[in-house]
Design a protein around this nucleic acid. Structure first.
Length: 820
RNA sequence: GCCGAAGUGGCGGAAUGGCAGACGCGGCGGUCUCAAAAACCGCUGGGGUCACACCCAUGUGGGUUCGAAUCCCACCUUCGGCACCA
């Protein structure tokens, strides 16, 4: 009988086994559920929920894992942390998949949600799954529809005809925010302009308030982007009479420079301006019609190009300058946009570069109204500021900086104009001619017109099993049985609204629903709102700066005005993570072949290592290339942590020794620095500190005979500080050390300043600002002590050469600079 | 054109007025091993030196300061946003 005895080896760190074990237990015991009745202070941490594309990618991990670490830190600090997760499940990809492969969008979407839920579990994040929301679920979109009705009641939802952005690829209209450089944000198709009747939300009613960011800590970048997007400009509206028989109404322009009105030598209307039709003279009609048709054919990109030469056509009509009484010609030109201001401008070529170019091209008059223009030679370009007014009747001599106010006041007094503010921001167009979204809960009745669906009839369910061939109209129009309904007022025949809602509407209020996700009576109770809202810490990508993040602020303010929530802002703190790139420094894409698949990384290295590597590559807000070879460093560190946790040194009682003091000092310094780092989302330096601490422990173990108390303190601290980053390995080691479950419910350590204090410090000795030597001094050494010690150094003594120091700069613990 | 952010070793990055390059990758050398892997230890900006000393070095050029990667001015480059918005 010769059996080989297999001796048990010290067990190795096997990430996957540990991770599966703990993920199962966390799920079974529901330790990340945030109860409503917990008396501790709440902390609402939120990371933007994903679209269920069916595959969780590294970008999701990069967004969520650090956010999870921060939430875990708050939990350890004693907060009742709510960190929910859900799915932004309506949207075009489902419908496109349906068209391409004949799958039902609902089936496709809900299967993807299943799969992504499992992929998300691999991350080991502390999500509160009991609060999950899926926006495409009728129990959720019932309330999205409810919000629509509330906004309608408040006069914040309206239907109007407007020139809308039409994406030919997506076969739907888009909001202005979804058009980037004239192209569709999603499909990159060149956006066309179509005049359509659509539903809008009156976000412009909150334009001024949206410009204020009081009481919130948001990145300056996002605040700037929103401010730019809203584009507030102050000026005046001026009313010009039109010298055309039968046209009584005034032609109103918006201008930021009412002070230049005496220099207005012509008017320019947008080609689409409604007055054009009525003022054009017979002999100009053909030219005007041609020009309007040509403009309509242009893409937005062509039209908005700043490079192209000015074009335009004379209408044959004249306007009367209300200040001078002079007749000036009215032109149309595509550089004037019908969507901005009043769609009409008074042209002052002497003081506006665009008008100047136009005047030059068409030989129109140029009259300077400021004395900064050199009238002895032809103007080369418009002069936009400075000087005193001339050619301006009673205003002559008024200095530039007082001119706008005086002219505006004069206009108001004489009823020919008034101060005005205009925004670049347009109302939010929310209609979509697509199937996979929440139906707009309205019906069109033959006798009563547009009638809201009564709240007790919500949700208006999407019909199932439909065909999706995009026709430019909502697929819902083809389903007669769904479209034909009865009028809620008189029971007579009516047709349903067939457009669905922009999916940004679903995500504008999801953070409110998380507070009370299963409420069948209301979107959320006021108790839940008071308990959980607003979000304390929101994290997500900056690509949503002027879409989601602007819409959700609008929604919140509207909800506040309806008495549904308290406070002025939905998210108190915002952090934008950067974009994680492929190892080659490019955006990850299948066509480039540089995709790092999280599931594979987890299989290979474990979730803890992958999480840590993502946090270690650089500052979170900066993003950057993912470095798979760097994974070795993280693996070494986690292995070292495992070894420190499973193979202790010989432990003795040596509480008073210098080595003990040094180990404890390292531990408490680490607590201090790591706490500061995680507060600031500086995960890369946080991990660097923890690596240093592990190395210090390794050296202490190597030296042997370590004080029992100091070792335990060092190890426990290392585990606690690492727990938010690498939740599985720390949980395992915590258990092996006999601590009660769970480390994630344990208290975050606090640094003892006394223990962290250095007794001695090395300081730099400079002579005339150059580093010449170093000395080690007691931490509390005085300047005189330091100077004496420095002068004793041969190198320093030589450089000073017996001279009296002109000046001595002493920064305790840092440096001593002797100036001679 | 306007607004904003950034530019540091071979690479990712650290340091926000006080030792430039923490931490990690990679590289080189070593310990252990029959050997290798793993692990551990040491070195690793450039010039210079046997080795020190010393000199140079944070996109470029100036400035402020005892002292500047850090503050100021001008410029260059890259990235993001806005852009015929009256």
């Amino acid at each position: 009988m010769s059996r080989i005895e297999v001796t048990a080896v010290a067990d190795r760190y096997e990430p996957r086994a540990i991770e599966k074990k703990w993920q199962a237990r966390w799920k079974a015991e529901d330790i990340y559920h945030a109860p409503d009745d917990d008396p501790r202070p709440k902390w609402y941490a939120l990371t933007m929920f994903p679209y269920p594309s069916g595959d969780l990618h590294t970008g999701h991990w990069y967004a969520m894992a650090p956010s999870d670490a921060a939430a875990r830190y708050r939990r350890m600090q004693g907060y009742n942390v709510m960190f929910p997760m859900g799915f932004d499940a309506f949207g075009l990809p489902a419908e496109n998949a349906a068209i391409k492969r004949g799958i039902d969008p609902a089936e496709w979407t809900f299967a993807n949600v299943e799969r992504m839920r499992e992929q998300l579990r691999l991350m080991g994040a502390g999500f509160d799954w009991d609060r999950e929301v899926v926006t495409a679920d009728p129990s959720y979109y019932k309330w999205t529809q409810w919000w629509f009705l509330q906004l309608y009641k408040e006069g914040l939802a309206y239907r109007a005809g407007a020139a809308a952005n039409w994406c030919p690829g997506c076969q739907t209209v888009l909001a202005n925010e979804q058009v980037i450089d004239g192209k569709c944000e999603r499909s990159d198709d060149i956006v066309e302009r179509r005049f359509l009747t659509q539903w809008f939300f009156k976000i412009t009613a909150y334009a001024d308030e949206l410009l204020r960011f009081e009481g919130i800590e948001w990145p300056e970048r996002v605040r700037n982007m929103q401010t730019n997007w809203i584009g507030r400009s102050e000026g005046a509206r001026l009313h010009f009479a039109v010298d055309v028989p039968g046209v009584e109404e005034k032609l109103t322009v918006f201008t930021t420079r009412p002070d230049t009105v005496y220099g207005a030598t012509f008017m320019v209307l947008a080609p689409e301006h409604p007055l054009v039709e009525r003022i054009t003279t017979t002999d100009q009609r053909a030219a005007v019609e041609d020009y309007r048709a040509a403009t309509a054919r242009q893409s937005e990109i062509e039209r908005l190009s700043t490079e192209k030469e000015k074009t335009g056509v004379f209408t044959g009509a004249y306007a009367v300058n209300p200040f001078t009484g002079s007749r000036i010609p009215i032109w149309i030109a595509d550089y004037v946009l019908v969507t901005y201001g009043t769609g009409a401008v008074m042209a002052v070529p002497a003081h506006d570069q665009r008008d100047f170019e136009f005047a030059l091209k068409f030989g129109l008059e140029i009259v300077p109204v400021y004395d900064v223009v050199d009238t002895t030679k032809p103007m080369e370009r418009a002069v936009t500021y400075g000087g005193s007014m001339i050619n301006s009747g009673p205003f002559d001599g008024t200095p530039y900086d007082q001119a706008i106010a005086r002219v505006t006041a004069y206009a108001a007094e004489h009823g020919i104009g008034e101060a005005a503010v205009t925004y670049r921001l347009r109302d939010w167009l929310i209609s979509r001619q697509r199937y996979w979204g929440a139906p707009i809960p309205m019906v069109h009745c033959e006798t009563h017109g547009i009638v809201p669906v009564p709240e007790d009839q919500l949700p208006v369910l999407l019909p199932e099993k439909v065909t999706f061939l995009p026709t430019g109209q909502s697929p819902l129009t083809q389903i007669e049985s769904w479209v034909n309904t009865t009028c809620p007022v008189d029971g007579g025949p009516a047709r349903r609204e067939t457009d669905t809602m922009d999916t940004f509407m679903c995500s504008s209020w999801y953070q409110m629903r998380y507070a009370d996700p299963h409420n069948p009576e209301r979107p959320f109770s006021s108790e839940a709102a008071r308990k959980w809202l607003p979000v304390d810490q929101y994290t997500g990508g900056a690509e949503h700066a002027v879409m989601h993040l602007l819409y959700t602020r609008f929604f919140w303010k509207a909800a506040r005005d309806m008495g549904l929530v308290e406070g002025n802002e939905p998210m108190l703190r915002l952090f934008n993570q950067g974009v994680i790139l492929g190892p080659d420094g490019n955006r990850m894409s299948k066509s480039r072949g540089n995709v790092v698949a999280p599931d594979e990384q987890v299989e290979k290295y474990g979730a803890d290592a992958f999480r840590c590597q993502l946090m270690f590559v650089g500052p979170w807000d900066q993003g950057g290339p993912y470095n798979p070879t760097g994974m070795a460093g993280i693996e070494r560190w986690l292995n070292r942590l495992w070894s420190l946790g499973t193979e202790p040194p010989t432990l003795v009682d040596a509480s008073a020794s210098a080595a003990t003091r040094a180990l404890r000092r390292a531990t408490h310094k680490t607590i201090r620095q790591v706490t500061k780092d995680i507060e600031e989302f500086s995960f890369n330096t946080m991990i660097a500190r923890l690596m240093e601490h592990s190395s210090a422990m390794g050296r202490a173990r190597e030296a042997g005979n370590v004080d029992r108390g100091a070792w335990q303190e060092a190890l426990e601290t290392a585990l606690l500080l690492t727990a938010p980053l690498a939740p599985h390995i720390t949980e395992e080691l915590w258990e092996r050390h006999g601590h009660p479950y769970s480390i994630h419910l344990a208290a975050w350590p606090t640094a003892d300043d006394e223990l962290a204090r250095d007794d001695e410090l090395e300081i730099v000795v400079q002579v005339n600002g150059k580093v010449r030597d170093r000395i080690t001094l007691p931490a509390d050494a005085s300047e005189a002590d330091a100077l004496a010690a420095a002068r004793a150094l041969p190198k320093v003594a030589e450089l000073i050469d017996g001279r009296d120091p002109k000046r001595v700069i002493y920064v305790p613990g840092r440096l001593l600079n002797v100036v001679v």
